[in-house]
Each structure stands twice: as structure tokens, then as C-alpha cells.
Design a protein around this nucleic acid. Structure first.
Ligand SMILES: [Zn+2]
Ligand SMILES: [Zn+2]
Lengths: 280, 280
DNA sequence: CAGGCATGCCTG
DNA sequence: CAGGCATGCCTG
């Protein structure tokens, strides 16, 4: 396997040709703690009003966020990964019909004349990371866009490091996300681009995060009322490069979710936590 | 006064510098029959379903139309205008706050990759005329866009000629019309660009013309219920280059409306028909 | 094709 | 900031 050594790269990886988590046509999205205990969480939040800038629903394991809002995401590790490790964030459409489509900003918002694009190197990237060390890459193979930042180990006494992410289109943007739900896939990678941990997160970018969260949770609860119980929904996956094991206790603040492809309104509660490992 | 002789022009008028109805920062929109009895009308229409492609409301004097639909507009004249006369269609924002803004397609829809722009000379023009002789101009002074077609006299025994117009964005297009109501100003011009007649028409480009017409008319009727009567709304105008005269009978199918600037929900029925003449 | 939801945004 | 409208689009 060929690796990309980011620590030596001066040209952006868009000009390189090494496989990374961003090179796949169908990127893996299953949660995988890996050997460094990589996972994410959200801090406490002011009571979510109808139009709060962002809110995270435990019940749905879903982030609701305004467009252009810097949203703090906590990245946990239990052991320090090797020096030169990076954190990558990449968006993927959730629905099988669209997974192969590259996620990018709509034409309106990627226009150079859009105020958000003044002095920005990646006007058409959906995800931005508020770090001076962030760099924006497009995989020449998959054409998928992502943002990469050097991974910083938690400060002493802390279990996580916080990064700020911005989402630069609405989920409803015509010609862009176009109302298609997305996931953000966060990967911890060594300096060669090898994946050492992965956490994905459903994100809804919208004008009223509070309202939409409440609506989602109401629907979700209705699904889970006694009279509508059932265990009919099978656990699905797309990647065949994974194996499966049972985890009895979630060792991290944000519990790894089941590898259920579309945790939509038909998803039912999964009794046992399931996590998946990349084949190594 | 300098004139543009379109019959001699081989370069598009975008490269000329003669005043025409499209050169003004604030184009006149008042209805004026002129000496050739220039006015417009709409043919009968299949019963307007919720999502009919287009429908014209007499009550509101307003056209409701789907984006991209070829909509037949009838142009009446009582006398033939001079040879070389043209018909121009230009869109203008209705609300005073926006009149000075140039109306054009949103960035999404003006993109070369948009299917509507294959082999089209004017991807960012809102109004298209379905005629092989149509040409698309941008006034170098006002930057306003318009489409021009040779004026064809009605066939013998007919009082009008029909032209097909398409509207290439939704009224709701973000970064484009952006939910700002517009008028289409149709002008009959001689070959030098001199205005010889003008008719403007409120147009709503939307996904459900039938529904939206019904909604508008319901609101309008509510305004006109006995208990909400009043004659408070004065006739306004912006241009000071006009004179005013009373016309006792509307000599054309579509009655010239009053020169009321915003025939919005507060407009009340005008008892006497008023028409206005350009100062010549 | 009508009913009605989804979702940005305006109004009080 | 919540209520609720406006408006594209999905569903039956
Ligand atoms: Zn966008
Ligand atoms: Zn548009």
C-alpha cells in the first residue's frame, strides 16, 4: 500500500495520488474507535431555542446547525496517536441513492462574489475548519473534498481537543445538498493517510436547528411508542471490508452508534451496541 | 436625441450607446397605448389546476407561470407601426426598494452546466422569447437585460400577434429574484429604439401557479369586502416625463390599468381609466 | 393533480 | 425569539 506522508508534503494532496479515506467512491462511515480510542462529543449547550445556532440531539445522534456557524466538536483519544497524525472531515450523502455523489457547496454559495468566499482558499467546500493550519484538499481520484488539520493531543488532564467546524450551505440549497441528508465522516489518520479511527455524524444544516431537532425527536419518539414496536429493521452495511463485534460498554462520551446505514424514521432501537473494525 | 437603428445593427446593442427604454436606471412601467394602440392580452386557458403551467388573473392583472414554460402573450395593435419596429421585454422589480436593481437569473440557473443553457446565447437572462429572431441585449448604461424581437403585425383579420415568453428562474430563487415581485415591461419601439407604446405586467414565477393565483385572489377579495372599503390610495407615479389624460373606453382586450406604482393588496378599484403618454 | 409537508424567513 | 406564513416539492 502506498502512503501519503503529509508531514513532507508541500504541495496539497490534491496533486498526489495515494489512497486515503477520501479516495473511495463509497467512503466507509461506520464508527470505529481504533487503537487510540478516537471518538467525538459535544459540550453542554444553552437551552436550544427555535433558532439556536447549533444543537446536538443525543436521541438522534444528530447535529442541527445553522449555515456558517462555528460549531465546537470535541475529539477524544485515550492514547496519543503517532506524531504527524491528522484529523480529516469529509461530508457524504446518507441515502444510498446519493452516496456516490460528491458533496460540495451549491453554485450560489461557491460564487467568488459570495461574502463567505473573500480570501478563502476553498469556496466550494461545504466543511470548513476554523484553524489557521486547516488545509483543503480534493482527492484526485474520487473528487471528494475534505478539510484536514494537524491532530492535537488533548491538553493534560483533558480527554479531548476541541475543533471548530463550519458548514457552508443549507441542507436545502438548490443544486447543492438539495435536501439530501448528509453525514460528516471524521477520520484520525497517520501522516501517511492511513485511517486509525473513524466517527461519523449525521448533520442537518438548517435555519431553525431547535425547531427541526424537536420535530425529529417527536417523530422518533412516536416510532418508539409501545404500540409501534418491532424489530423488523435489519442492520445493513455497504462496505464489505468490515468485521463486526459486540461492545458491551461504550467507552467514550458519544456512544458509537450501530452501523445502520440509514438511521431514518424506520430505524428501531438496537439492543446491543455494535461497532465495526476496519479490516487491517 | 440619438437613436439606435436596429435594422442596420449587426453588432448587438450591448455595444451601442443610444438611449432606449432599457437604458434607464428607473424604467417607466406605466401602461401607454401610444398611437398604434399597443396592448396585451391572454388567450382562454384550460381550467387552472393547482400546478397549471400558467394562468392569468384578470382580477389581479397578474400572470402566474412555471419556470421555463413557454407562455403565449398576445400583442395587439390597432394600426401598423413603422417597418423595422421591435418588441422588447424587460423585467423590473416592483417594489421601490428594489427598482434600481437589475433583474437577472440566479447563479445556479445561469450556470453553463444548467441544462437550460445548452446552446443559449444569454444564460443569465430571466426572460426568453421563443423566436429564432429573438436577440438578447444588455444595456451598457443601465446594465439591464432585455430580449428584443422584430414586431410582426397581426395577420389579416386578427387584432394581435402571439409571442411565446419563458421565465427562467423562480420568484423564490436565492440570490436572484429572491422573492421580490417583478413586472415585465413590454415596449413597442421603432427601429431607432424610440418607445411607441408600453404595457407592463406583474408576473409571479412559481411552482404552483393555480394555487398561488387562488391565494392572491382570495386575499384581494377580502380587501374588497364591504366593511373594508375605502378610497384612500392615491394614484402615484415616478416618472415626471409623463402627462396624463382620461380615457373613457378601454379600446383593447386587456384594459390599461391605472398608473398605480404598486398594485399591491392596498390598491383600490379606480373608477376612471387613466392612461399616460410619454412626452415626445 | 390535490393535499399537505418541509423549510427559509418575516412579523409581532 | 416563537408563531406562523411562503413556497418548492413529495405522496397518495
Ligand atoms: Zn448553498
Ligand atoms: Zn434561479
Amino acid at each position: 500500500m502506498v502512503h501519503t506522508d503529509y508531514s513532507k508534503v508541500s504541495l496539497p494532496p490534491v496533486l498526489t495520488h495515494q489512497p486515503t479515506p477520501a479516495s473511495c467512491t463509497l467512503p466507509a462511515t461506520n464508527n470505529w474507535l481504533g487503537q487510540y480510542g478516537f471518538c467525538i462529543s459535544f459540550g453542554p449547550q444553552e437551552k436550544p431555542t427555535k433558532s439556536t445556532a447549533w444543537t446536538y440531539s443525543e436521541m438522534k445522534d444528530k447535529l442541527y446547525v445553522n449555515m456558517g456557524t462555528a460549531c465546537p466538536v470535541r475529539f477524544h483519544t485515550t492514547h496519543p496517536p503517532p506524531p504527524g497524525s491528522v484529523l480529516r472531515a469529509m461530508a457524504v450523502f446518507t441515502k444510498p441513492e446519493y452516496v456516490k455523489d460528491v458533496v460540495k457547496r451549491c453554485l450560489n454559495h461557491s460564487s467568488p462574489s459570495d461574502v463567505t468566499n473573500e480570501n478563502h482558499p476553498a469556496p466550494d467546500h461545504l466543511i470548513r475548519c476554523e484553524s489557521p493550519q486547516a488545509y483543503y484538499v480534493m482527492d484526485s481520484n474520487s473528487e471528494r473534498q475534505s478539510v484536514i488539520v494537524p491532530f492535537e493531543n488533548p491538553q493534560v488532564g483533558m480527554s479531548y481537543t476541541t475543533y471548530l467546524f463550519k458548514f457552508m450551505c443549507l441542507g436545502s440549497c438548490v443544486g447543492g445538498l438539495n435536501r439530501r441528508p448528509i453525514k460528516i465522516v471524521f477520520t484520525l489518520e497517520n501522516k501517511c493517510g492511513l485511517c486509525m479511527g473513524r466517527q461519523s455524524l449525521e448533520v442537518r444544516i438548517c435555519a431553525c436547528p431547535g425547531r427541526d431537532r424537536r420535530t425529529d425527536e417527536k417523530h422518533f419518539e412516536r416510532q418508539h411508542e409501545p404500540h409501534s414496536q418491532g424489530l423488523g429493521e435489519a442492520v445493513k452495511r455497504t462496505s464489505n471490508e468490515i468485521c463486526q463485534e459486540f461492545v458491551t460498554v461504550a467507552p467514550a462520551p458519544k456512544k458509537p452508534k450501530s452501523n445502520n446505514e440509514d438511521d431514518e424514521i424506520f430505524t428501531i432501537k438496537v439492543i446491543m451496541k455494535i461497532t465495526m473494525h476496519d479490516k487491517t
